[in-house]
């Protein structure tokens, strides 16, 4: 049985694309924080915890919310069979640098647990899992570039071995105001489903280029 992409979302510094359509544009050329807040307001999201997140979590979280916001069916599925598998290049280096600033001087030493907790890249997966009550397989891979060949192989293996029914997967990276997220919702194909996008490397590569 083939696995398919039932929804995807790409966020880069200029626009938000959902299933091939541009749903929001950064026409005012806002900074990352303001731009994310504008997207948050555009979709009328209400999740106060969002404002505590670091930038990597913010972009991954916003992309996941856009994909999942009207999905009522997913709430009825077994949470242990919904996974989140993400890949990224710069881990949490951006937040690591902010954290290092709080510990480098003996005279100005104020390490904060609220920053330290965001110095692990899988925490973005944790935030998405908490929001949606997903409890299945969750792994954060770090690679220089988005690797659709590996991601499709890994996720298809989890789906085909009956460990997962649904998987949110893709790429989220943030470093020094360069950022991009491309997330895909992957499900098993159902009978009579047509016009689907197969969850194959070539389709991930094509979609990732839309940004």
């Amino acid at each position: 049985m083939e696995n398919i992409i039932t929804k995807y979302c790409l966020i880069d510094s200029t626009k938000v694309i959902v299933d091939g359509k541009t749903e929001f544009e950064n026409s005012a050329n806002e900074s990352f924080g303001d731009y994310m807040k504008s997207i948050y307001r555009h979709y009328d999201f209400k999740y106060p915890k969002y404002f505590k997140m670091d930038n990597l979590c913010k972009i991954a979280f916003i992309a996941s919310e856009i994909i999942l916001k009207d999905n009522e069916i997913i709430k009825t599925l077994d949470p242990n069979r919904i996974g989140v598998i993400l890949q990224n290049s710069h881990s949490t280096i951006d937040t690591d640098l902010s954290y290092v600033d709080t510990i480098k001087d003996k005279s100005n030493y104020f390490p904060s647990p609220a920053i330290f907790v965001y110095t692990l890249p899988n925490v973005m997966i944790g935030e998405i899992c908490i929001r949606n009550k997903f409890q299945g397989e969750n792994t954060c891979f770090v690679a220089k570039e988005f690797d659709p060949d590996f991601i499709t192989e890994y996720v298809n293996n989890l789906m085909d071995s009956e460990k997962l029914d649904v998987c949110l997967t893709g790429w989220a990276d943030f470093i020094d105001n360069n950022y991009k997220a491309t997330l895909f919702l992957v499900e098993k194909i159902k009978e009579n489903q047509k016009d689907n996008i197969s969850f194959r490397p070539e389709n991930l590569k094509k979609i990732n280029k839309e940004g």
Binding site: V117, G126, E127, I130, K133, F134, Q135, E137
Partner: peptide, 22 residues
Amino acid sequence: GANSNDANHISGPSRTGDGLYF
């Protein structure tokens, strides 16, 4: 081998142990 998520808190483990149990 398998992994799971508590879907509970980013820095505190689950109070029930359900995630690790899964």
